[in-house]
């Protein structure tokens, strides 16, 4: 199960497992983001390359207007995946 929604502070809260089957839901939400935003991964347990693709696509689109995604509360397993993928150099990432 994967869920994505805004919290009361305007952060984008991701919950559950972002696998290839959940990409359409994640992409549809991210496509609506038009300004710099913070993604809270405190409740995100898992991400695969399909989810990484969504993040990269969104970051590239936002960069065209000088905006960017920031990702906070990343668990150590997802943090390792970001590191392997080189995402730590193209995203502002904060571990849990």
């Amino acid at each position: 199960m994967f869920d994505i929604q805004y919290d009361a502070d305007g952060k984008v809260v991701c919950t559950g497992r972002l696998d290839a089957a959940q990409c359409a839901k994640g992409q549809a939400f991210m496509d609506e983001i038009a300004e710099s935003s913070t993604l809270d991964f405190a409740q995100l347990e898992y991400i695969s390359s399909a989810g990484l693709g969504i993040l990269l696509k969104t970051q590239k689109r936002l960069a065209e207007s000088g905006a960017a995604l920031k990702i906070i509360n990343v668990n150590n397993h997802i943090y390792d995946v970001f590191h392997y993928s080189g995402f730590h150099a193209i995203f502002d990432i904060k571990a849990k």
Partner: peptide
Amino acid sequence: NVDTNASLEERTPGGLGVYLIQNL
């Protein structure tokens, strides 16, 4: 071969799956 040091402008979605498999 995935250039994980590539800049955001140079990166394209895709190709990470097999790379991650081989590394994990």
